[in-house]
């Protein structure tokens, strides 16, 4: 075989022998998919850990209207996350986190539109939609910064634990419930927020490359597609965090 010149028939060629894209996806896209798969494992592990730890604590039993924060049982998320900026003292359960969810979904949509524009070699379109995506990402990060700050500094409903007045949260104790509650909040939303942050940075780099014409000279906008995959994944993770951390 080694010294015979063969005319390789494309259809029967070994897809793993090189020269062709196995699974009809380019190397970069395929590797992005496998990276996202491994990242999905990490996030699954975090969320399942949340489920396990929550399940190993007693749940609050009683009417929602009588609910009070206690270290004895796991808090009801909608009683913890009920603040909205500029509306101090207004009980608006899950409203702010709902707004954040819509912002992230919208920025995912603008990312699809950027990829679509890239397929058509429409540089102006790529620039416009990438910019909207970046703005959406930054807005989401700003919202999360506010939420963290509010969570750390605490709600008006302070709680006496032993002789100490507890307000807000840190890694060892918090006013909302068992210490694991705050620890998991910081870990899961923090890890997701860091993904959003790196997504914004990567999006900006590709936006810059599109703007100065690097991608156009390259002849294709596949980089937009690859960072698009990452960005959608970040949105996907948020969908799960929203359900399992805030709704259930």
């Amino acid at each position: 075989m080694a010294n015979t010149a063969v005319v390789v028939d494309e259809s029967s060629a070994n897809p793993w022998g090189g020269g062709v894209a196995p699974m009809k996806a380019s190397y970069g896209k395929l590797m992005m998919w496998f990276f996202l798969l491994s990242d999905a494992f990490t996030f699954s592990a975090l969320l399942i850990t949340y489920g396990m730890i929550r399940y190993s604590h007693p749940a609050y039993e009683g009417a929602i209207s009588d609910f009070a924060f206690s270290q004895e049982y796991w808090p009801i998320p909608e009683m913890v996350f009920e603040a909205v900026p500029f509306l101090h003292g207004v009980h608006a359960p899950l409203v702010f986190v709902g707004i954040m969810t819509f912002i992230l979904i919208l920025s995912s949509v603008t990312m699809v539109l950027a990829v679509e524009a890239g397929h058509r070699m429409d540089r102006k379109g790529v620039e416009k939609w990438m910019l909207w995506t970046i703005i959406g990402g930054i807005t989401f990060l700003g919202c999360q910064a506010w939420e963290w700050s509010h969570f750390i500094h605490g709600a008006d409903m302070s709680k006496n634990v032993g002789s100490n007045l507890i307000q807000g949260a840190n890694l060892s104790i918090n006013q909302y419930g068992p210490s694991n509650f705050a620890a998991l909040f910081f870990f899961i939303t923090g890890f997701h927020g860091f993904h959003v942050f790196s997504g914004v940075v990567i999006n900006f780099i590709i936006f810059y490359q599109a703007t100065v014409g690097i991608l156009e000279r390259r002849g294709h906008y596949e980089m937009v597609e690859k960072v698009g995959l990452y960005w959608h994944f970040v949105d996907l993770v948020w969908v799960f965090v929203f359900t399992f951390f805030y709704l259930v």
């Binding site: 798969l37 999905a40 494992f41 699954s44 592990a45 399942i48 850990t49 489920g51 396990m52 730890i53 929550r54 399940y55 190993s56 604590h57 007693p58």
Partner: peptide, 21 residues
């Protein structure tokens, strides 16, 4: 297909959580 491992982990850790409780 690899996400099957996640399904596995869900069941095993939920079971563990109930035992811990």
């Amino acid at each position: 297909l690899p996400m099957m491992f996640v399904v596995f982990l869900i069941f095993i850790l939920m079971y563990q959580g109930a035992a811990l409780l």
